[in-house]
């Protein structure tokens, strides 16, 4: 897997839907269509993006793995890929 994909759609959530995320409101969730296969989707939050930055369907994103809690767990997340169009 290349870890690359494109934004299929997104939403920026402003109201609490799960209390665990109240500290980071508002935040943006995206659905990513992976490069390897049409119709293969993952949900992610969009990291490293300033709220208000223009998003579009089809923008390239790439994965990175963020540490999550203890025991070496990681969480795959996506960020905008500046190197591709």
């Amino acid at each position: 897997m290349s870890g690359k994909g494109r934004i299929w759609s997104w939403t920026t959530t402003h109201r609490s839907v799960i209390t665990n995320f109240d500290q980071v409101l508002p935040y943006t969730c995206i659905v990513v269509e992976l490069e390897e296969q049409a119709g293969l989707f993952l949900v992610s939050d969009l990291v490293g993006r300033e709220l208000g930055a223009e998003l579009k369907v089809g923008l390239p994103v790439s994965v990175f793995f963020a540490p999550l809690g203890e025991k070496g767990k990681v969480l795959p997340q996506f960020k905008l890929d500046q190197d591709r169009e």
Binding site: T11, T13, V17, I18, N20, F21, V24, Y27, C29, V43, S44, D45, Q77
Partner: peptide, 8 residues
């Protein structure tokens, strides 16, 4: 990812 609600 905090993406759990039907509204999202």
């Amino acid at each position: 990812y905090g993406c759990v609600s039907p509204i999202q």
